[in-house]
Design a protein around this nucleic acid. Sequence first.
DNA 1: AAGAGACGTCCTAACATTAGGACTACATGA
DNA 2: TCATGTAGTCCTAATGTTAGGACGTCTCTT
Lengths: 247, 247
Amino acid sequence: MTDQTKKPKFFDSSPIPLYVQLADIIRYRIERQLWPEGTMLPTIDTLMDEFSVSRVTVRHAMQLLSSSGLIEIQRGVGTFVLKNHTRRNPVKVETTLDGLIEAYRNDKPLLTYISDSSEPLCLTEDDGIPAPSYQHLRRVHTRDDVKYCVISIYLDERIFKMAEERFRTEVILPVLASLDDVTVANAKQSITISKADLETSRLLDLPLGDPVAHVRRVLTASDGTIIYVAGVTYRGDYIHLEMDLKK
Amino acid sequence: MTDQTKKPKFFDSSPIPLYVQLADIIRYRIERQLWPEGTMLPTIDTLMDEFSVSRVTVRHAMQLLSSSGLIEIQRGVGTFVLKNHTRRNPVKVETTLDGLIEAYRNDKPLLTYISDSSEPLCLTEDDGIPAPSYQHLRRVHTRDDVKYCVISIYLDERIFKMAEERFRTEVILPVLASLDDVTVANAKQSITISKADLETSRLLDLPLGDPVAHVRRVLTASDGTIIYVAGVTYRGDYIHLEMDLKK
DNA sequence: AAGAGACGTCCTAACATTAGGACTACATGA
DNA sequence: TCATGTAGTCCTAATGTTAGGACGTCTCTT
């Protein structure tokens, strides 16, 4: 019965541990330049106050950030922002097929085949006319040692047979574009955002629940046959989309 | 020294409680139709086995899903998938200015002004020539009782003065478009994905760390003056982007 | 009415998270 | 050298998460 002051507890009620939430907030502030590189962070006691949490909690959060190299803790001195954790080389989402092909011509990701287990090919009426059969390829793209997307491709088997070896070892789209016998008449792409599920989080070394972008691409031939369907799951932080609204 | 069998512990090492992760996985399977509406979920004992977790953990996860209305637990019978939690009415991200204006003409969201505290206007050389001064407006858009984005707008003060009242009470872009004296020469938009920070999670009633999309729009007049800069943070699950890759 | 198959409850026992407070160790400048 | 400010350590205690197991209760079918 000492004091019944309301405890805002700031962002409790979430099942995520306080120290993780706190670390997220601090990371966010650093990324947003609120605390630029080299700055000394508020003292532990100040942060305890600001967020009404205990010492243990603040320290735990700090250790998390420190071990990920974002800050440096100096005993007896203070805690300092290290690197500005600049956005790492995001993937520019191309808005044209040519751009997409061109992008892959310059950037050859490491391809890792993965065993299947994924969603079956699912098409809507709008997509076009299904081909008689498809070859399924599923792999992870890696660049600079970072696995940045999982891609699951269904390729018209007749086309696949034209360059089986190349399709297996190279990125599909440039190969597809290089085949004289194949003409892509239509190409659609849709993007949605969701959270990394168990499989994705494993494949991309991502924490479960981290933001990801799902991209679905459908290419059709001039007779309406669907020749290529891809479902790509990108790490959310690798996505960057630019568009000119003035057409 | 009884048995030292390795415990894969499936997705431990994450600070997020197991039962939350498990609930996420089950929700995901339901959403992906792996367990369609009406299906009986595997028994608690089966799930305990599949994921190597204890009874308490499975039940805790189930209760979470049950209380969010996704499943129904029937004692002595089993647990069943209720509604298929269909995607709720996502916002189609427009790729042209006219589309954007048109979209807002048909969909009038509820605007809630919020006190400031946000990032200052930050522009790059590329954006254009800054106007002498800007009016800042910051608000939350709500549709069907769901707060789906926070928008922070900087509007050239000279333009703001032309229709102060309307700018305050209506969605900016349609008003801007309706002014004869204003011509938008250029309009750019960029999209990135990140996690909800503390402020966003509060404003949008979203769990901290949930996926969000940041959209930045810059409009310039024909003389290169930047007349409008908007930073919009959307709920990730409200974003849907369609594009025709064939230009 | 009985049995099988489900979920519900309860218990023990580790750990992890968190608050709150006291005290220690270190670095730096006056 | 010493005061000051900062991070580190340690303690108690409450609460939450998880494993593992035993047993209770409910529903439905035979």
